[in-house]
Amino acid sequence: MNMKRVIIIGTMIVTMSFAGTAWGQSGISPIPSPKWSIVDLDTREGNDDELLSALNQPSEADLYQELYSGKSLKTITEEHNGNLNEVIAIQVRQLREQLDERLASGSISSEQHAAQQAELEELVMQSANTAYNLV
């Protein structure tokens, strides 16, 4: 055999052996879509969001627009005959769940957890009554 042929065949074998492991794996990896807002704009049919129900809002996009225009959650619930007490209770519950998850994952200490839990309801009530002018 001539030397040129040995080098070409050897290179092909090495290339195929390295590439063979890569061929078994998918080259496509799912990339999550970024969330650009604190309000999820997923407005699919049948989306039963308890916060939207309490605010009496048809969609998250509508809620986002009203918040963006400078209305407080209190104003939005009053304008749409929603239930402000239910809105506050939902937000407090969701934030407590997040704090519990952060404590369980170790990202906050038990002292931080207790301190944040203590001021949670007051913070949510204050936030619900505050209008943020983003325009």
Rank of each mutant, 00 (worst) to 15 (best):
R5H: 09
I7F: 10
I8A: 09
I8M: 08
I9E: 08
T11N: 05
I13D: 06
I13R: 12
V14P: 00
V14F: 11
V14D: 04
V14T: 14
T15R: 10
M16T: 11
A19Q: 14
A19H: 12
G20N: 03
G20P: 01
T21H: 12
A22I: 13
W23C: 14
G24P: 05
G24D: 09
Q25G: 04
Q25W: 15
S26E: 12
S26Q: 14
S26W: 11
G27A: 12
S29W: 04
S29Q: 10
P30G: 07
P30Y: 12
P30V: 03
I31W: 02
P34N: 08
P34S: 08
K35F: 09
W36Q: 01
I38M: 10
I38P: 10
I38Y: 13
V39W: 02
V39N: 04
D40T: 10
D40G: 04
D40R: 03
D42K: 07
T43Q: 07
R44N: 10
R44P: 04
E45I: 08
N47H: 09
N47Q: 06
N47L: 14
N47Y: 12
D49Y: 04
L51E: 01
L51T: 01
L52T: 03
S53Y: 07
A54K: 00
L55A: 02
Q57S: 10
Q57T: 05
S59V: 01
E60Q: 15
A61G: 14
D62Q: 13
L63Q: 03
Y64N: 08
Y64P: 02
S69M: 08
S69R: 11
K71H: 08
S72T: 03
S72W: 00
L73N: 01
L73P: 03
L73V: 05
T75G: 14
T75V: 06
I76F: 00
T77W: 03
T77H: 05
E78A: 11
E79L: 02
E79Y: 05
N81G: 11
N81L: 08
N81V: 07
G82F: 00
N83I: 01
N83C: 06
N83V: 05
L84M: 10
E86D: 14
V87R: 00
V87N: 00
I88W: 00
I90Q: 02
Q91R: 15
R93L: 12
R93I: 06
R93V: 07
R96L: 05
E97R: 06
Q98I: 13
Q98N: 12
L99Y: 10
L99S: 02
L99P: 04
D100L: 09
L103Y: 01
G106W: 02
G106S: 03
I108M: 04
Q112H: 07
Q112Y: 03
H113W: 05
H113C: 03
A114S: 15
A114K: 15
A115P: 06
A115N: 14
Q117L: 14
A118L: 12
A118C: 15
E119A: 10
L120A: 02
L120G: 00
L120Q: 04
L120C: 04
E122T: 10
L123G: 06
L123A: 11
V124C: 05
V124R: 02
Q126H: 08
S127E: 14
A128G: 12
N129T: 14
A131D: 13
A131W: 09
Y132F: 13
N133K: 14
